[in-house]
Nucleic acid binder design. Structure first.
Lengths: 348, 348
DNA sequence: CTTATCGGTGTAATGCTTTACATTAAAATA
DNA sequence: TATTTTAATGTAAAGCATTACACCGATAAG
């Protein structure tokens, strides 16, 4: 068989290898490698000779070979539940910033609530395609996480979310306190019928927030008014639940505490549709402080999370674990209630 | 909570090699490799024996070794200008879907308008860390792209955006026609003072849209009313430009055609602040049809791009290029004007 | 003046898979 | 039956960088 380009044949303009550099610098490949990996082990003169040779032949290390030999990949997998949620973009920025600085790449894995995908991404670790996993969702098979956390050499950090029954290194906020803060604020405005529009009920962060809601109402003697509705964090579920919750009734809530800004914005739309003025007749609080929350009508009161910081700290922690450096395994970052125009004193 | 074990997930974190499989299946490593890479080259019996052995020892190929040997990485770099722009999330989904199906990973590179970052990502190709580049922004050093496109073996596809003077394989929409459509619609509603709020003036897609705006106004004899303002696609620039454009004046525009939904939503906020009712006194058209456009007030009339499809087709094209398969180098996908509540007949 | 020490460098093994080429067994042909 | 073809498998050489170990000359210590 005569073919101009053989199947599997490589680049005709073959990249130079470390051998070519060694030849050009009249030294061994070991010396070249050392010049790159630990320059202090090499004479000033050699270093210069090798550097010149590298420039001369246009050498760049073959990363696959390096990865193979070092049994690492300098890649970190970040697992998200849903990349289209704008909440994550700043977290990603924070992560990438720290990762790049430390010479790592970030492979973003959108799980789309599909366990098979999550497993595929986890599998990148044992096959040396990734050095660590940054988990931004609890919606992955628990067994996977348990196996991983049981392994000593499986660097895994959780951010934002967490598992109630698995102790992973975690960067998180205090969801309980954040909820207490929000509800306290609503009560202080005079609200008595306050509904929580939660994310998926099984989600640990939602459970925490609901607990905060619960306890705060109880502390004010409002336990009778407890009412938790469930959404999925998205616009649409907020809108639909809003229509239901705000339907005419003599126990219609005067305030809704939403577990995401998207849902809160959905509720605002429902309120508009039902001609319920916000904040005059209804107060709405969101969660996350996404970009939109300043541009909706009315501007949204919400709980802000330090997203960039979450991403940075989570990545720092993960890299420490990868390098087996000592690190604080748990960090709770602070949130902030940002009061805008979607909340106000109760009027009757 | 019940922890279910996934099918075939016994000890996925300890990695046997192909040798272990060969031993267990009593054959050579070559046969194992062939069983995986080209099963038809192997007896039914062997195939089964090997498959059983693989399952038995829990083998998964070491990808770094494979990559090294095959001189490929099965990784594709997708370069975005800004990951926090929700416009890209569906495109990413489309890309990933096709990529995964073909056995590729997608490495998302946020350039953040930083040429150095873009260059770093481009460099992944010659070092075998990536097999192709999917470019979703024209904000990268032109020299890089020119060098790359000059190489015969540099698979590079552009999506959404393009370069006026470099002929790259491209998946795009007809920005000119989309703009014409939008402006025609506004004129048909009676608008005469129509402003375009463009993205960065140097951006080729914006130039096309401005050209469509221009020509449409000219076609209606409205050339005198041409007025192009410049933003950066973000909320804030829309808001600020909105405040300027809508300042009291006897030539205040009655319609604004924005090159992104975010800017359009910013304009809506400015209009609210200036007590200009939309659509009664001002019509606003956005571009992209992001999720939020249905939840703002009023719901936004906008031009929808087939984002998932753009991602899919771009990835298909790129993979064809990588595999040296024949492929259509240019595709223009169709847009749709989605009329909601931010546009209406001119009233005065 | 030896001997131990040490910094700098080279040699060669190693990581794991793929695949060209060699070999063998089986089937097809003469 | 002998010979050619074909199919299936095995052997071993890449692919490229890293690094344990060996080596050498030079300096420090005795």
């Amino acid at each position: 068989m005569l073919t101009t380009s053989l199947p599997g044949s490589r680049n005709i303009y073959a990249m130079p290898t470390i051998k070519d550099v060694a030849k050009a610098a009249r030294c061994s490949t070991a010396t070249v490698s050392r010049t790159l990996a630990s320059p202090e082990k090499v004479t000033e003169a050699t270093r210069e000779r090798v550097s010149r040779a590298i420039a001369e032949v246009g050498y760049a290390p073959n990363v696959a070979a390096r990865n193979l030999r070092r049994a690492e990949s300098k890649t970190i997998v970040a697992l998200l539940p849903d990349i289209s949620n704008p909440f994550f973009s700043e977290i990603i920025n924070g992560m990438e910033e720290v990762a790049h600085q430390a010479g790592y790449q970030v492979l973003i894995g959108d799980c789309e609530h599909d366990p098979a995908r999550a497993e595929a991404y986890f599998r990148l670790l044992p096959t040396n395609q990734a050095d660590g996993v940054l988990l931004l969702t609890a919606e992955v098979p628990v067994s996977l996480v348990q196996q991983a956390s049981a392994q000593t050499n499986f660097p895994l950090v959780m951010a934002c979310e967490f598992f109630a029954d698995i102790d992973l290194p975690t960067i998180t906020i205090d969801n309980y306190q954040a909820a207490r803060h929000a509800i306290d604020y609503l009560v202080s405005l005079g609200h008595r019928r306050i509904v929580t529009l939660s994310g998926p009920a099984a989600n640990p962060i939602c459970i925490e927030r609901v607990r905060g809601y619960h306890d705060t109402l109880a502390a004010h003697g409002l336990s009778d008014a407890i009412h938790v509705a469930e959404g999925d964090f998205g616009f649409r579920s907020g809108y639909l639940q809003g229509l239901t919750l705000l339907a005419p009734s003599n126990t219609r809530p005067t305030a809704i505490f939403c577990h995401s800004d998207e849902m809160a914005i959905g509720v605002l739309k429902a309120a508009r549709q039902l001609d319920i003025p916000v904040p005059e007749k209804l107060s709405v609080i969101g969660f996350d402080n996404i970009g939109f929350s300043e541009y909706c009508e009315p501007e949204l009161t919400t709980i802000s999370q330090p997203r960039t910081q979450i991403g940075q700290q989570a990545m720092r922690l993960l890299i420490s674990l990868i390098k087996n450096e000592p690190a604080v395994r748990h960090q709770t970052l602070s949130t902030q209630l940002i009061v805008r125009q979607s909340t106000g004193k109760i009027q009757s």
